[in-house]
Nucleic acid binder design. Structure first.
Lengths: 346, 346
DNA sequence: GCCTGTTTTGAAACCAGTTTCAAGTCTCTT
DNA sequence: AAGAGACTTGAAACTGGTTTCAAAACAGGC
């Protein structure tokens, strides 16, 4: 496969300078006499020369790239976040390499293993093992090893790794949501979805529970319904079970731990003959396009993804300067009111 | 940043062999005496050594990576397809690098420009310029240049580039859909969404129109409604306009050119007081998780994404062997019947 | 024990850049 | 016109692997 590419050596020969000088011109890394610079730039134009990023990566030890490991891009939460990250990265001249674990820990480990060998500047670990409150020993070891080579940013904050953290802070969003729901007269809530060993789920539950306690509202047995996964169908199944209970014992507002769960609950409500929001109010998390497109549109707590991306790039730049840099930052979540919540049914 | 990594030189020294031998052991690329092989493997284990992929990429001229350029991962069509591709790639020991154009031609061009410098084995071009029936001259030039360096696989077939093609063949799916709708008594159709300069849209329109003609069914003025983009809201706006027409002049079945458009139409129908599928039947394309989660769930023509991934990898392997290899392959689409279509309303 | 043929092996070149270092070239004083 | 100081420059080493080539080691046959 001899795609004999043009190299800086070719340019150097043709311009009558050394490869070092070409490199300096391309990187603006040192003063080069104007006439030589012009001659080189002319050839760059002429051949539409783009330096080989792999060779650059090898010699500079970084690929101007950030690696993002997440559980599943098909989940709109992750794809939306990914786009926020990529937008910010591109405008800082960085590339993103997406590693999709396909919801499979083995693939996640494989990515963790492989990405270390790719001279990525920084890793961002989202979801999967990063969210696990009790990660497997194997995961911890792997991350330990990765951290030795490449600075890591975690999107969760519960573990003790020596790394930066960039978290979404649901608290303000949840407070706004609860205040809004209280204002609508709701006093009986159910929280549907997820497993409490997943850090973001745990923290949401915790925050909500704290707010209820502060307001002396009852937290009945069974007001939290776990689901094995975070898909629409999980919400649907949970909702179906919930709505079998006698009408009077039903909560007036249901919070899905995630957009897809909330959508599932909504569907179950409909099927049970309950109107949303007249008979039951439903809210969720994430605030991606899904919340806009469902009927009724979903009132939602969610992060500003573009701000997440920007903050991330700030952190990345500091880490590139100094791999020992450590910071824990938060991107606040807000409330977006749509149509899925209404006055509490009596 | 002196992360003095372990290299094959270190292993070689410690094992008392040459770097060449270590390389041979790691790649199984030649016979190495058993005792030396064992000694090397022992050290590989001991240090959990993973060869530097960038250096490997530089010296072998390929990164065992396929580059996928698409318009927007937030679109479930693309994220689902991406997952199909990644699954297949991983099980062939390849990596995928995702380039999301964020629906912006400039970013698309930038990716096209950059990816060429990354020693990617093969490019897959999906959406954006690849789908444009009248691509800009700039795009053509850029692609020409890319093709010279890296084999390209197009997901559309209308242009004349010297490249492989791996297309989704809607025809069987559309035929099944139309037969199904005819069986339900439908004779008046509307097709909503998209621009006819987008290749897949054009071809769907063409196929449907051909089938209608074959069945001597009328194709009234305005039975095709274009939309500027392919989002839910475009479908919604188009639907809103459509449903303002007197009830009797309405089509009994509406086909959204895309899942999101179909969802938008569904919402408009609901808002106009039309029940789906009792008053109007709605079908769509793509068949991602969205079709399952909407209410009513959407009857849909769609491709088998895992098969697309597998075929892609077959093609990639042939192209890696021989960059001059050319093939045009098709992955058939099928029909998935759900609940959004019913007996034609009289 | 020597010759031949096959395996193993290491030195060195290569991939395409960056960077250090010392030498070469200017410009400005005096 | 020489010397000092500031700019420019190219040679060479370096990033971490792979691969070619020829030499070294080994096995088998005589």
């Amino acid at each position: 496969m001899k795609r004999d590419n043009i190299t800086i050596y070719d340019l150097a020969r043709e311009a009558g300078v050394s490869p070092a000088t070409v490199s300096r011109v391309l990187n603006n890394s040192a003063r080069v006499r104007q006439d030589k610079r012009d001659r080189v730039m002319e050839l760059v134009e002429k051949y539409q020369f783009v330096p080989n990023a792999v060779a650059q990566g090898l010699s500079t030890q970084n690929m101007r790239t950030i690696g993002v490991l997440l559980s599943d891009v098909r989940n709109p939460f992750y794809s939306t976040l990914y786009v926020g990250i990529e937008t910010a990265a591109i405008s800082s001249g960085y590339n993103v390499v997406l590693c999709d674990a396909l919801n499979d820990p083995d693939i996640e480990y494989q990515h963790l293993e492989m990405l270390g060998s790719k001279n990525v500047d920084v890793f961002l670990l989202l979801g999967g093992g990063a969210d696990d409150l009790r990660p497997r020993a194997e995961y911890k070891q792997l991350v330990e090893r990765v951290i030795q080579k490449t600075p890591v940013i975690f999107a969760s904050g519960h573990h003790k790794f020596d790394a930066c953290r960039l978290m979404m802070n649901d608290v303000p969003g949840i407070e706004a949501l609860m205040a809004y729901l209280f204002g609508l007269g709701h006093e009986k809530f159910a929280i549907v979805g997820g497993r409490p060993t997943v850090a973001p789920t745990h923290s949401k539950l915790d925050t909500i529970s704290g707010i209820l306690a502060r307001n002396s509202l009852p937290q009945e047995d069974g007001w939290v319904i776990e689901t094995p996964r975070y898909e629409v169908d999980d919400g649907y199944q949970a909702g179906k079970k919930l709505f079998k209970r006698p009408r009077k014992t039903l909560p007036t507002a249901i919070i899905g731990i995630n957009e897809m769960i909330a959508l599932g609950v909504m569907r179950a409500a409909e099927e049970a003959g309950l109107r949303v929001p007249e008979d039951v109010s439903i809210a969720g998390f994430d605030n991606t396009f899904l919340s806009k497109i469902c009927t009724p549109s979903l009132t939602c707590v969610g992060c500003m993804y573009d701000i997440y991306g920007e903050k991330l790039m700030e952190m990345v730049k500091k880490l590139v300067q100094n791999p020992a840099y450590r910071e824990t930052a938060m991107v606040p979540c807000g409330l977006t009111v749509r149509r899925s919540c209404g006055q509490a049914a009596r």
